[in-house]
Design a protein around this nucleic acid. Structure first.
Lengths: 153, 153
DNA sequence: TATTGTTATACTCTATAACTATA
DNA sequence: TATAGTTATAGAGTATAACAATA
């Protein structure tokens, strides 16, 4: 006798997942926004800050402090684009690449813990159903819609 | 070749669901926080503000402005508890009860739109899997974990 | 003295618009 | 003049602590 639909359950479980993930990566001194940026720079290196802002659906001004923090920690490097000296080309440093491995391990542990109640087959089913929904709802793969509202120094 | 796990998909689809729901109820001039409060008052009328705050996992001070707004619109009523005049007993007004019907319709439309990609059987499967996860993760039925971070005048 | 609800303060986060440097 | 990045300002939202009324 719960009476709550799948939409509410999705929002509830999804917020819980995001919260638990934030707690896990906090142990690496990272915020969700920082991880999102790191992932994007790792996947497509050399992009400008504005290009990245557009892909994340956030505003370019937000990236300044975000990149500043990761650059000071030696995780990201700002390379000037020789062709157009107005643009930066963002890339991961050696330490940044090493950190990505730790983030991957954290993500896998998070994944296992979150779906601990499911069997292997149920996990595959859930993944397939979520993918169907995400596809039909036109969600960009790898981009968290709530990115705008996630803090990150 | 997406490579994103169910945990990320859950967070992504969940945030999308919450966002779309917020847009729908905005047409009723309501915020997610206000709907959460209305639902709780409708389910268990007569509770004090502190009791409600505890159930929502938020702080009592936040409820003041929240209740103020709904009271001024004639949706919620503050009744003084005769036994202990420090406490209020929050209840829905006639208009408040009517509004709950409209919220229910909005929620159902939201539910259908969000799961439009799924068959009837797939919807039942998704609901069962999400319930399993929510139960194992000790999530309180009907309480959105991200309630703390939802605005509401 | 303890508790309910309220108010006040400071703090964080975001968004908008100006500014610089390059083109 | 147009664009990338930066900075500055104001606004919204939250949390903490103090306050008044009642017990």
């Amino acid at each position: 006798m719960h009476g709550f639909g799948s939409a509410f359950l999705l929002a509830q479980v999804g917020a819980h997942a995001a919260q638990r993930f934030a707690e896990r990566i906090a142990e690496l001194d990272l915020t969700p926004a920082q991880v999102g940026l790191l992932r994007l720079v790792a996947t497509r290196p050399g992009q400008s800050q504005q290009a990245i802002a557009a892909q994340l659906g956030t505003q370019p001004t937000r990236l300044v402090a975000l990149v500043d923090g990761l650059e000071k920690r030696g995780l990201i490097e700002r390379h000037r684009n020789p062709g157009d000296r107005r643009l930066y080309a963002l890339e991961l440093s050696e330490d940044g690449r090493a950190l990505m491995s730790r983030i991957a391990l954290t993500s896998m542990a998070h994944e296992r813990a979150l779906t601990a109640a499911l069997t292997e087959g149920e996990r595959a089913t859930l993944h397939a159903l979520l993918t169907k929904i995400a596809d039909e709802q036109d969600l960009t793969p790898g981009v968290h819609p709530g990115y705008t509202r996630l803090k990150g120094s």
